[in-house]
Design a protein around this nucleic acid. Structure first.
Length: 115
DNA sequence: GCCCTGACTGCTA
DNA sequence: TTAGCAGCCAGGG
């Protein structure tokens, strides 16, 4: 898969790939699941550098910030695209453009077969 | 190897 | 309840 991507990036992509359709997780949650609770920003970095070919296998749109909002900075088009993709999966946004994490948050892999 | 930037967070005021 | 701000981790120049 990933040719020479940093290990952390690969771990992020692998975990995000497991997020089920219709569910979301936060950057901090992804980091915590990778045993790096302080690496939320690094998770954002990893997704930002998501290789084109991976866009089809890694549901990057299911990763949002801890406030339930979409985090692109200065890229309104991407924000709209992410929202569209999530709504297409059945996820609802409130009038403030936020997702109800209590309702859509994924608990994480319950069984880790391959780490 | 140093410094800046960023798809983040939690704590203060 | 909202607005700031200082840590944190990894890349890029």
């Amino acid at each position: 898969m990933a040719g020479h991507l940093p290990r952390f990036f690969v771990q992020v992509y692998r975990l995000v790939s497991r997020i089920p359709r219709g569910k979301v997780v936060t950057y901090g949650q992804v980091a915590a699941l990778l045993n790096e609770p302080r690496a939320a920003r690094a998770v954002g970095t990893a997704l930002r550098y998501l290789p084109q070919p991976f866009i089809r296998t890694v549901p990057w749109q299911r990763v949002i910030n801890v406030t339930g909002g979409i985090s692109f900075r200065g890229d309104v088009l991407r924000v709209e695209e992410q929202r569209w993709l999530l709504e297409d999966e059945g996820i609802e946004f409130n009038r403030h453009g936020k997702v109800d994490l209590k309702k859509y948050r994924w608990s994480g892999p319950k069984q880790r077969k391959n780490r």
